[in-house]
Simulated assay, not measured.
Amino acid sequence: MNASSSLSDIPLPPGIRSRFVDGINGLRMHVLEAGYETRGRPCILLLHGFPELAYSWRKVMPRLAAAGYHVIAPDQRGYGRTTGWNADYDGELNSFRLLNMVRDVLGLVSAFGYRAVDAVVGHDAGSSVAAWCALVRPDVFRAVVLMSAPFAGPPPLPFDTADGPPKPKRDDPVHRDLAALPRPRKHYQWYYSTREANANMHHARQGVHDFLRAYYHHKSADWKDNAPYPLKAWTASELAKLPTYYVMDFAKDMAETVAEEMPSPAHIAANQWLPDSELTFYSAEYTRTGFQGGLQWYRCGTSGAFTTELETFSGRSIDVPSCFISGKQDWGTYQRPGVFEAMQTTACSRMLGCHLVDGAGHWVQQEQPEQVSRLLLEFFKQAKIGG
């Protein structure tokens, strides 16, 4: 049952409950929970990405609970039924910065009475939050799983510069170069940071439901042109090889972009991993909240306003046991050239596995939940042996 009668029921599998937890860093946090029937279980925390919700973990949670874990999945700041955040484009961005997201997660863990959790698992934008949780508080987050978005490590500080002339900060020419291509393009993260991005999706001509259907389809293994490979460099010519959901046509918004890849009614009817009855919950939630809460995360990243705070951890690596899971058909693994490799060589010092799951695109835990659950449980066992 939901804590508010004005909210619709969530179509959850047996064994998952919905609840609210107050006083979490200024938030009233909506949480899905499995394995809550008995106390004293080890805890696993699941952090969703964009445009998703705690609901995105519905297929994995019962499997982890059956293995003996207490599983907690929140609607993160900016999303779903969690309240206490501000979606005003002209409001403050400060609360959406990465280290405050870590504070949100710490507060949630503490509210549930845990001094530490066995693992934090993050998907997409949630992967960044999970990575910083493990980097900043390894005493609390004893292992980490990064999904669909590899972690490059903290931003570096300028090094060995005392005896040289000061170098001006160089502007990244890639956006100008993308716009100057014969087929002008733009990067989706910078588009997501614009004032109009929320309205483009929230008031999409096709409606929120069909927008999300096309968006999820376009980034899934169902879209047959998703056959990713490493890019050579962060240059316009290389980035232009990415699908349009990452590097968009310059004159199009995201709703127009994905509308071109809308699956047929027959394809939708045959979809097993995201039937329309489940998509309806996402579309109802995003119709209610809009997308700006999630877009604030992108704005924090593209603005560079909080980079200096992250540079405090320059040179640090994730030293707890770590694992990476992504769809084999997910371009997210390679969208930032060199990061997938850096994660395995320098950013994570105890990486125990790196898995690309066939038959999954970007929504790996929804497209291939059995495989993902198996890989998670194997890693949790391994991490304990190594810890």
Rank of each mutant, 00 (worst) to 15 (best):
Asn226Pro: 15
Pro42Ser: 09
Thr333Phe: 09
His218Phe: 15
Pro154Val: 14
Gln368Met: 13
Tyr216Ile: 09
Cys133Glu: 15
Phe291Asp: 14
Asp330His: 14
Glu378His: 03
Ala255Gln: 05
Leu98Ala: 11
Asp330Asn: 09
Asn94Pro: 06
Val117Gln: 01
Pro42Ile: 05
Pro156Tyr: 10
Gly353His: 03
Asn94Gln: 11
Pro138Trp: 06
Val372His: 06
Gln366Pro: 05
Glu33Asn: 04
Ser322Thr: 13
Ala199Pro: 05
Gly78Arg: 00
Asp22Trp: 09
Val102Asn: 08
Leu274Val: 09
Leu274Gln: 08
Thr312Lys: 03
Trp57Met: 03
Glu196Arg: 15
Glu378Asn: 02
Gly126Cys: 05
Pro62Ser: 10
Arg63Pro: 01
Leu310Arg: 01
Met1Trp: 05
Tyr334Asn: 04
Leu106Gln: 07
Leu157Cys: 10
Ala143Lys: 02
Ala259Lys: 00
Leu375Arg: 07
Phe380Lys: 12
Asp90Ser: 06
Val121Ala: 08
Gly91Phe: 09
Leu279Phe: 04
Gly78Met: 06
Tyr69Ser: 10
Thr345Tyr: 03
Phe281His: 15
Ser8Leu: 09
Ser110Trp: 04
Pro275Val: 01
Leu181Glu: 02
Trp57Tyr: 10
Arg185Tyr: 14
Gly23Ser: 10
Gln366Cys: 12
Ala305Pro: 12
Val364His: 05
Val136Leu: 08
Arg137Lys: 13
Val320Cys: 05
Arg103Gln: 14
Glu256Pro: 01
Arg299Trp: 04
Leu178Cys: 11
Ser8Asp: 12
Tyr188Met: 14
Ala152Val: 13
Trp297Pro: 10
Phe112Asn: 12
Ala3Asn: 11
Gly315Arg: 01
Asn271Asp: 07
Val31Tyr: 14
Thr312Glu: 07
Arg103Leu: 15
Pro13Lys: 05
Ala251Ile: 00
Asp22Tyr: 11
Gly301Asn: 10
Thr302Arg: 06
Trp132Leu: 11
Glu52Asp: 14
His175Ile: 06
Cys354Pro: 03
Leu376Ser: 12
Trp132Asn: 09
Glu260Asn: 02
Tyr216Gln: 04
Pro74Ile: 15
Ile72Pro: 00
Asp222Ile: 01
Ser314Arg: 00
Asp177Gly: 09
Asp22Gly: 11
Cys43Pro: 04
Lys186Met: 08
His218Asp: 09
Leu108Thr: 06
Gly361Trp: 00
Thr289His: 13
Ser373Glu: 02
His267Glu: 15
Cys300Ser: 09
Ser18Trp: 07
Pro321Trp: 12
Arg299Lys: 11
